[in-house]
Amino acid sequence: MTSALGTETAGLGIARGAEEPPSLRALRYWAYQYKRTWRGSITTSFLYPVLYLTAMGIGLGSLVNRHAHEVDHVRYLVFLAPGLLASTAMQIGGNEATYPVMGAIKWMRTYYAMLASPLRVRDVLFGHLGWIAVRLVTVSGIYLGVMAAFGTIVSPWVLLALPAAVLTGLAFAAPIAAFAATQETDTAFSTIYRLVLIPLFLFSGTFFPVTQLPAWLQYVAYATPLYHGVSLCRDLTLGQLHPAGDVAHGLYLVALTTAGLWAALRTYRSRLVV
């Protein structure tokens, strides 16, 4: 009897082992969705860094270099590129965690379709954030490729800038998704852009070292996530590592991502399971 049960359980175990993890099944949905728009999306992922690096890095950069010679011991273009990489990751994380989350709850109701299947709330959430991570890998990978083409890559540590950028994006996506799941309309999203993402983009060291800011504003910058994403990506790209500082930047982003996930599990549950 016991052995028969044991065999059965073992058999089940094998069957379970062959199963695709539920959150990966949810992720597949987003991949299917993306099939429709990937061409435009990939093109944008190339164009955006090309335009920014040309306009700001080369155009504005030539002025900066003439007056300041170097920023943080490198040409302005080289200084700027990793900042833009982190900012782009933030923007992708923000975009993908606002309207698509609202759509999956209110417009297309995709989350409800998933929840009618064996998928659970956590699978739905991890599947969506997993997809956002996939997007971040692609976009950041392309960005690094463009940076290489612009000759801004000077250190092998740059390989770690990819996970750093993805982490930066997730540190925004997870808490923003948690917030988006509490909203009835999309009006608050434009407020997030105007009052959170754009100020962070401007004042987190993307375009100039935060040490150029008045002292009190520097402390504000240190408290915000993009500053840590920019610093980490820049240190890795330039190969100018500050071990303690860089570990702290990473931990900050991991902590924010984790807190966002925890909050999102709660807001998703209270929104989707009533």
């Binding site: 099944r25 949810a26 597949r28 949905y29 299917y32 969705q33 429709r36 297309m108 109701r109 995709t110 409800y112 379709a113 998933m114 009618a116 299947s117 064996p118 998928l119």
Partner: peptide, 18 residues
């Protein structure tokens, strides 16, 4: 709760994958 942007067939495939 259909996905309006996907095709009829893809709606079935995606759902079956769940």
């Amino acid at each position: 709760t259909l996905d309006l942007q996907l095709t009829v067939l893809d709606n079935l495939v995606v759902y079956g994958r769940y």
